[in-house]
Amino acid sequence: MSHTAPTPRAELDGIPAYVPKPPKPPAEGPSYRLFLNENPYPPLPSVLAAITEAAAQTNHYPNIFPDRLTDALARRLDVPPEHLTTGPGSVGIYQQIGQAMLKPGDEVVYAWPSFEAYPIVVRMAGAVPVEVPLADGVHDLDAMAAAITPRTSAVFLCEPNNPTGTAVGAAELKRFLDRVPSDVLVVLDEAYYEFYRSPDAPDGVALHHDRPNLLALRTFSKAYGLAGLRVGYGVARPALAQALRKCAVPCGVSRVAEEAALASLRAEHELFERVDRIVAERERLRTALTAQGWAVPPSETNFLWVSAGAGSEALAGELERGGLLVRAFPGDGLRVTVGSSEANDLLIAAVGRLTPGR
């Protein structure tokens, strides 16, 4: 009998774990999760009722694909159902992209820092990451266009960007898309679409009609507050959407998740009132932090980026000891979720005490 063990693919060597190690809550007192860009509000009563009813049927498999949700989204977005693919969060659709669209040796261009799934998805497919540094915290679209070569198979573009919250806007985005070869897939990640309030905000769903190489991704995790149920969707022309559906995990969106998403679509008016409150808190929080001397760029998401440079980890540690759990990017800054008013008040006070020179 051989004593050797199965050998994992070499492409997996060095791939980081996707989920960061969560900060440690304080030993005493309340703590606030401000490190995963979660919605601070619990499900609406109508959504919770749908979840409860669906949970009673979890002895049954869900449909292979969430057909009722697909039809509802098609009506909501005014697109044919065959333009849609779904998955357990937008991350699930990135895995479909890796299987359907990326081959070993392909190059994938994306900004950095950006969504942490990008290097993981690319390397798992055996493809080659081409990371283009941000310019003053914003996508450098000229540099990204220049990085495209005959070996490029895809471009990932997070608009607005995670973790900086910054955005390029529709006009610049369209100019960039016009420069991308038609045989290169462009994944426009709009996870924070509902928080994007600039009059120049792009709409990937509208853009995809005239661009066969464009895939717009959205999610129910953020604005709809269903992060724990994992529901995401993509909108693309039929040939591309069909290829992604072929790679989707069967029954990947649970019955509970589908019913919660359907109930959320029915309750959008109430949910978007909450989004308005989060946006107002975002602006209040940014105004307070910039007044304290911190560099905080304008955000179009439900989080803020605090440029703390080399002091990022130390600042995060101080905040965590006070029950404010934030995400540190060593040497760069902090990503801070816009939480409840109470959590935001505590953050303003805590950061104010730590501001240099005060």
Rank of each mutant, 00 (worst) to 15 (best):
H208R: 15
V253T: 02
V187N: 02
D203P: 10
L244T: 00
Y192W: 12
Y233P: 01
D203Q: 05
L185H: 03
H208S: 11
A191Q: 14
L240Q: 03
R179S: 12
D183A: 06
L229C: 13
A243T: 09
H209V: 15
A201L: 06
A239D: 12
D183Q: 07
A201S: 12
D189V: 03
V186W: 02
Y193R: 14
R179Q: 08
R255V: 11
R237T: 13
L265S: 00
E259I: 14
R179T: 15
E258D: 03
D210K: 15
S182V: 12
S264D: 01
R218L: 12
K246D: 15
E268V: 10
R266G: 10
L214C: 05
V256R: 01
A239K: 13
L244S: 00
L185R: 05
C247A: 13
F195M: 07
V180G: 00
R197N: 15
L207N: 13
P250Q: 04
L262S: 02
P238K: 04
R218C: 09
A241R: 01
Y192L: 15
P212R: 07
L265T: 01
A257D: 02
G204A: 05
S264Q: 04
G232W: 00
L188V: 06
R237C: 12
A243V: 08
P238Y: 08
C251S: 14
R179L: 07
E268D: 07
V184Y: 04
R179M: 06
L217E: 02
V235R: 00
R211Q: 13
P238E: 08
D210W: 11
V253K: 00
D183E: 09
Q242D: 11
H209R: 14
V235N: 01
P199E: 04
A216E: 07
V186M: 01
V235H: 03
L207C: 12
L240E: 06
V231I: 07
L262D: 01
A243D: 05
L188M: 04
L215R: 05
V187D: 06
L262Y: 01
R179N: 11
L229H: 10
L207D: 10
E259H: 09
A261E: 00
S221G: 13
T219F: 09
S221A: 11
G252K: 09
A206Y: 10
L262N: 02
P250F: 02
L207F: 06
L185D: 02
A243K: 14
V249G: 14
A216K: 01
D200E: 10
C247P: 14
A191N: 14
S198D: 07
A241G: 03
R245H: 04
R197Y: 12
V180H: 04
S254Y: 03
V187F: 05
V205K: 05
D178A: 09
S221C: 15
L265H: 01
A206G: 12
A201I: 07
A239V: 15
Y233V: 00
A206V: 13
V253A: 04
F195Q: 07
V187K: 01
